[in-house]
Computed example of a mutant assay.
Amino acid sequence: MHRCVCAALAVLSLVGASPTPGSAPPRSVPWKASRLDKPNEHVIFLQYGETEPALKLKETMPVEELNPTHYPARRAAAVAQHFLNARHGSPYKWFHVEQVQSATLEEIAGVGAKYHVVFSAKEGVCNQSVGLCTADVLFPEAGGDQTAPQVQCSCEGPLAINASAQEEAFYRRLRGSNSPVTGNNIPDSFGFIAPDMKPLWILAGVASSFVMLKESNENTLYNLAQVANVTQLESEDKQLKFQYHVLLHEMVSQEIIHWKLLVTWAPAGGVSVLHPERQPHCHDCVLPPATAPKERSDPE
């Protein structure tokens, strides 16, 4: 009888023992990003896999409801707006957030802050609603090199808005011109944009979304303030090519940030931004009066 009890205790001690040094640890899967193409939808789909104990811990973490009119919710929606423009924008397609309907925040230990936002949006050139959009915006945990937020976004209405007639006419006009188009101070100090400059202004907004998406974090809110200058360059292929100098307004710090962007576009190929280059800080730069932000009344 005594020998049986000892044997049982020995078996139990083996069952409850910790892994020995050198044994294989539980396998965990890091964040991954992959493109998912569907009609009317072009998103980056985020997946996260982890070991069972970590997953249980994540499930118990509280999800915070956010006031949709306050800055944390609006910042996340602005990142989704830049995401939509970077993938669907053109000189005649520029998407804007109309109103944030709801927002939540989930802090994921070791990963970052995940915002879930629902907002109404529209395409501003033809003033066409795209209905409600739903986005998950993950801001990576602070520390180390700045990494772009990871975004998953889809909308009820069509994002592939048909502006082919306007785009083709604009494209043919610039391809057939003997003198490359140039422009300065768009809009001017009175907020005026000449009609023939509006497609170039919108293209600057779409191209700037590439930069604003990459540079955004939980403490920023970017907006295109002005095109300091734009020059059409010669192109060896069917793409139109432009050199832009844009002023981005970071509304939290009130800083005006200068960027030079080499932008290419064609109706068939979409917008691409090559060699974005941040310019040195300008102490004397001021925001154009026409684009000065309204006084903030909601909390950070």
Results as ranks from 00 to 15, higher is better:
residue 9 L to Y: 08
residue 20 T to H: 10
residue 27 R to M: 09
residue 30 P to Q: 11
residue 33 A to E: 13
residue 35 R to H: 05
residue 40 N to K: 13
residue 49 G to C: 11
residue 50 E to V: 11
residue 67 N to M: 14
residue 78 A to N: 09
residue 82 H to G: 05
residue 98 E to S: 10
residue 98 E to Y: 01
residue 108 I to F: 00
residue 114 K to W: 05
residue 120 S to M: 07
residue 122 K to A: 06
residue 123 E to D: 09
residue 124 G to R: 07
residue 125 V to S: 06
residue 128 Q to G: 04
residue 131 G to F: 05
residue 139 F to R: 07
residue 142 A to H: 09
residue 143 G to N: 08
residue 145 D to A: 15
residue 149 P to L: 02
residue 153 C to F: 11
residue 153 C to V: 15
residue 154 S to P: 04
residue 156 E to W: 00
residue 158 P to R: 10
residue 160 A to P: 04
residue 162 N to H: 12
residue 167 E to Q: 14
residue 169 A to Y: 02
residue 171 Y to D: 03
residue 175 R to H: 12
residue 180 P to E: 04
residue 182 T to E: 00
residue 185 N to L: 11
residue 188 D to T: 12
residue 200 L to C: 01
residue 202 I to K: 05
residue 203 L to M: 07
residue 208 S to H: 03
residue 212 M to E: 10
residue 215 E to L: 10
residue 216 S to E: 02
residue 229 N to H: 06
residue 233 L to N: 07
residue 236 E to G: 08
residue 236 E to N: 07
residue 240 L to A: 06
residue 244 Y to N: 05
residue 252 V to Q: 13
residue 255 E to T: 13
residue 259 W to I: 04
residue 261 L to Q: 03
residue 263 V to N: 09
residue 264 T to L: 10
residue 267 P to L: 02
residue 269 G to T: 13
residue 273 V to K: 01
residue 284 D to V: 05
residue 285 C to K: 01
residue 298 D to Y: 14
residue 300 E to H: 10
